[in-house]
Design a protein around this nucleic acid. Structure first.
Lengths: 177, 177
DNA sequence: AAATTTATGTCAGCCTTGTTGACATAAATT
DNA sequence: AATTTATGTCAACAAGGCTGACATAAATTT
């Protein structure tokens, strides 16, 4: 036998592969796909001295106009101190405005301005183009499969939240309010 | 008409939706899916005082044992100074070893140790489970569609690099030496 | 009415992980 | 012998996370 018990410090020369019971193919594809997906808007953000954090805030404020600070924190899963920095910059540059909550005057409802709406669209455009290109090579019906898969990757507790946003595009917040 | 020309500072109350010609559904699903996907290993990494940067290095060293520092930098697209910090920690903790390149003695080939292999597997396991669960809800044939889509999202220049890794699992580096 | 809780803001400091620039060394190449 | 290449390292900086502490106004509870 060429094999002998390896010491802990010995280099392992064999590659980790799908044979190890782990789905490395999709793990790796997911990594590379997401990295290039986020690289598109990074170019544009650089011109504004903004980063990905600004992008995420701007995205969700445009997707759910009028959400409160607490709701935004819940979606982004960051602390209010982290949010404060980027949100302040977006407000100072006139991309987002705050409106005192009508029912609860402690709340601050967040809305995009025309400027903020424009930037959100500009940032999303190349991502949408990339998705369209990837889907163009796909078979009809692939889209449904991809949406199912991506939703299946999300923690179940969070899925309803997403369903609300992606199922249709209109503003249905608090209609029963 | 209720509508009047909006000033730049005015809040926009309508939500950005797919009607704007942008594929917000998949943009958002991709964001949430990736966030939860990366949250799995974060738990484990915390116990080692490691971060995602360590995970990425460990992953690729296990997937391509013997790659050089330059090759790893090319895959990760970070600077050598950024890599140096986390790589040093992984070496100091016995997860990765360096071997002087046999052909070019300036090069450092990177290999996982048994410890590093074990951690890489532990980190990948929950991600693989998440993927399996998402695929379990899918139709047969969905997997192929998903792989096509994810590969289609990657910059074309980088696809060959990925194909090499994911097509099969065995170590085929430099067989033509 | 008073006390408490809630939503938000803000100050201060810390950590990780990215960046650039400069310089050192050994090995390969010209 | 001179130059280029692969790697390492020092120093400084920035973005964007984090925790802890404290302030304020408004809502809620007692």
């Amino acid at each position: 036998m060429t094999q002998h018990p390896e010491r802990n410090e010995d280099p392992i020369k064999s590659a980790l592969s799908g044979d190890d019971g782990i789905d490395f193919t999709i793990i790796e594809l997911f990594f590379f796909a997401y990295r290039d997906f986020t690289s598109d808007p990074d170019q544009i953000l650089g011109e504004y001295a903004f980063g990905r954090a600004h992008h995420r805030v701007l995205h969700f404020v445009n997707r759910r106009p009028g959400l409160t600070v607490a709701e935004l924190l819940d979606v982004l899963k960051i602390t209010k101190q982290s949010l404060a920095r980027v949100l302040k910059q977006l407000i100072d540059t006139g991309h987002i405005v705050q409106v005192q909550g009508p029912r609860d005057r402690r709340q601050r409802e967040l809305y995009p301005t025309a400027k903020g709406r424009g930037l959100a669209l500009a940032l999303a455009a190349p991502q949408s183009r990339r998705i369209a290109a990837a889907l163009a090579e796909a078979a009809p019906g692939d889209r449904a499969a991809i949406e199912r898969f991506l939703l299946g990757m999300v923690n179940p507790e969070q899925r309803t939240q997403i369903d609300d946003q992606t199922a249709t595009g209109d503003d249905r917040r608090r209609e029963a309010g």
